[in-house]
């Protein structure tokens, strides 16, 4: 498979994942499982953009690590805030 074909497939995959994400947003139920699913879709989309569009696999280690830290940190924070929101509110009580 050529690099161009991989790029086109990546775009199609991103469009499909966006539609899935929008479908999740239209659901009335708000369970923890849906939050995890939303975070996973977010992480997957960001990973595809990093690897295929931004070409991070070829980048220097420092750039790769910093971008991966940001990109994977966000879905993790989404899940943690959903699971331990009370604790975060208690810890940051003085800020609000």
């Amino acid at each position: 498979m050529t690099e161009i074909r991989k790029l086109d497939l990546a775009w199609l995959g991103l469009v499909a994942l966006s539609v899935i994400g929008a479908t999740l947003g239209g659901r009335p139920d708000t369970g923890f499982g849906v939050t995890v699913l939303v975070a996973l879709v977010m992480g997957l989309k960001v990973r595809i953009v990093c690897d295929r569009f931004l070409e991070l696999p070829t980048a220097r280690r420092g750039i790769r690590l910093a971008m991966h830290g940001f990109c994977y940190g966000m879905p993790v924070l989404v899940i943690l805030t959903s699971a331990f929101g009370d604790t975060l509110a208690r810890l940051t009580g003085a800020l609000i």
Partner: peptide
């Protein structure tokens, strides 16, 4: 996008 339009 998910933070404001999807996540409930």
């Amino acid at each position: 996008f998910p933070l404001f339009y999807v996540l409930r």
